[in-house]
Amino acid sequence: MIGKKTLSLLIAFLMLFSAKAHADMLQIKGSDTLINLVQALSEQYMQKNPGSYIAVTGGGSGTGVAALINNKCDIANASRLMKAKEIEQALNNNVKVNRIVIALDGLSVIVNADNPLFRLTMGEIGKIFRGEVTNWSEVGGENMPITLYGRQSNSGTFVFFRDAVLKGDYSQKMNRMNGNAQIVAAIKQDKSGIGYVGVGYVKNATGLTVLKVAANPKADYASPLNSADVKSGKYPISRPLNQYINGTPTEKIRDFIEYELSPTGQRIVEEEGFFPISEEYKKFNEKAGF
């Protein structure tokens, strides 16, 4: 027994030392949407660059942003933009934030496979989810009442969809489902239903139609399943996934971010179910120095 105890103490001691030895490792913190992706990226990066150490943790975009403001991490993952207030707080702490977009996330709008409708405009989707349109016939479908399925208010997707598509409040009659998978399950069973989920949840799903969406009545319709359309921005409901850093990056941070944006990195982005960055965001990153 004593032997075991001593051994574990010894190991703990060694770990302490080794942790000290890598005190210069990269700390990445933030969004739970991004955590799997950034973890995959850093694992591949560490394999390629022996001797480099990257620690990726979650906790939500807010956690990451707060850590960056307090200079407690090197990179903050954020599935939303930093608020003006937060940028100001950071400046007060001598942290000058710099934003890089590493991937795109597409949101798909889905209906039951028995619903003949296959496309909508952003305006129509907004009206439907705000509760202003309540029958499919008003948007060119069958004469059938619309049943709404959305996420619960604790979801980042709930907030993003509301701010980007509705620009108003959800109908009080929208069913609040407990996750993406439940929305998919509900839409499969409900001919009158419409819902929104991350595109990763519908790539291989059967029994439902992923709607083509146009930014306005004059624009072309595009599908989130077509990654070229999401990349080019033709598919209108996509959001950038961001990383924030403090000012001019150190060599190590720069090297890792450049790896994320490289063709290899962007292929991992696609493998993880997200989309590579568009030309627009490539230019944006160039301005930020990448």
Binding site: Q152, N154, Q172, K173, M174, R176, M177, N178
Partner: peptide, 23 residues
């Protein structure tokens, strides 16, 4: 769990407990 006033037993409802748990 739609937050609107319930219309009938065949419509969605949202109880006190689920509101607390959701939010």
């Amino acid at each position: 769990c739609a937050p609107a006033m319930p219309e009938s037993f065949l419509g969605p409802v949202r109880t006190l407990t689920s509101s607390i748990a959701i939010e």
